[in-house]
Design a protein around this nucleic acid. Structure first.
Lengths: 217, 217
DNA sequence: ATATTTTTTTAGACAAGCCTAAATTTTATA
DNA sequence: TATAAAATTTAGGCTTGTCTAAAAAAATAT
């Protein structure tokens, strides 16, 4: 059984590694966990001893198959709770992340099964992120960050990367939510800001924003 | 802000003291927390320093007004979550206690307000226990344990004291749930077992059971 | 009233998870 | 390639919450 801290580290490693695609450095992890590098090294050793991550001194860590499975279970719980908070308790999508960070650690397989059923087996959370199934399987749609598309692009918003409350409030204001149609009219070479159409309205968004919007390919 | 352990101790002290009516001894608390007396003494000192409990060495502890308020907030959360689990997720009343023990520590005042609203502002939980309001106020109905009533008693079940899963399953089987009408036909002098009528059915219950059933006066 | 038993407290230790400061290894630069 | 800078690890320490063993206080029995 994993402690709360262990679950949080594992989840962070999973996310930072892009589903295991690249190794995660100690300082990266320290930043993302709001802790110090020395503390990270301590925890890394514990997770490594439990064979949840691979660890090569000075060269970073990554999740093992076992570790990835555990991380996905936590992510599943997080996303189901976020869905519950928005769909059933009428929270807005910018309010739910912090609460779900707590709820994701509740231990009860039956609870998650029942919650999943209560919500009608949702496949994505309020931010458009896919919800892993009970076995940790995720269905990922082909997607690309909005800052990578070319002028003239037409597609649909799939998800939003960052869960920062201010970003989400802003995106809601301009209508940039998962499921919405989106077009790119122009791209400013100087700062890579985009002129886009959302809900028949022209809007300008900076690169800082556009890189957090994931759209269909 | 209180730690998880502190909240649990405070809640235990509140319950064992009967809402502050009597002092709680170190060993009592150790038993109820499944821990050792020495550990209890340590924690008692911390809670006492925070003025959440009064502590007289060797003579036990009790909640202060501040401590009682905190305990009631935790109890409010516990009972709201139990209600959610039974009413919305279709858990049976014998399954919810353990899960609510975890959920009661989630920190988010907004979450509890919204949950309360979602549930339609319930006043009692699935075991018949009253749910404190946002300010910690409880409405307690006059009640008495079933083992204290005399032959011929007629009334209604208000609540069940123990949350032991086996007891609850048994009570459900014989129809002894909050809200049900109940009559006492006879009391056996030797072991104080009772012959009762529930749902037009005669049943015998031992004193161990009857003392856990709270009925109208 | 004194001795024995029970209860409670104190003393000292340990694991988890964090920290700072120092040492080490890797990377970047001259 | 030698050296400086940056990243990482190690060493040692702190807090929380737990434990065991010993000491002290209270309750009980003789």
């Amino acid at each position: 059984m994993l402690s709360l801290a262990e679950e949080n580290y594992l989840k962070a490693i999973y996310h930072l590694s892009d589903d295991g695609a690249k190794d995660v450095l100690t300082n990266e992890l320290a930043d993302s966990m709001n802790t110090k590098a020395a503390s990270v090294t301590d925890m890394i050793k514990k997770l490594s001893a439990k064979e949840l991550i691979t660890y090569k001194k000075y060269y970073g860590v990554n999740v093992t198959a076992k570790g990835k499975g555990r991380a996905l279970q936590v992510i599943r719980k997080h996303r189901l709770w976020e869905t519950f908070l928005v769909q059933k308790l009428n929270f807005t999508w910018d309010e739910v992340h912090e609460i779900a960070e707590q709820l994701e650690h509740i231990r009860s397989p039956r609870l998650i099964e029942k919650l999943d059923e209560f919500l009608g087996f949702p496949t994505v959370d309020p931010h458009g992120d896919p919800i892993p199934d009970g076995k940790g399987k995720i269905k990922i749609k082909p997607q690309v960050p909005l800052d990578q598309v070319t002028e003239g692009y037409k597609g649909t918003i799939i998800a939003v990367k960052d869960s920062d409350s201010n970003l989400l409030k802003y995106l809601e204001k301009i209508g940039a939510m998962p499921g919405r149609k989106i077009q790119v009219i122009g791209k400013e070479p100087y700062d890579e800001s985009l002129e886009i159409i959302l809900e028949n309205q022209k809007v300008f968004v900076s690169k800082d924003v556009s890189k957090n919007i994931l759209v269909t390919e």
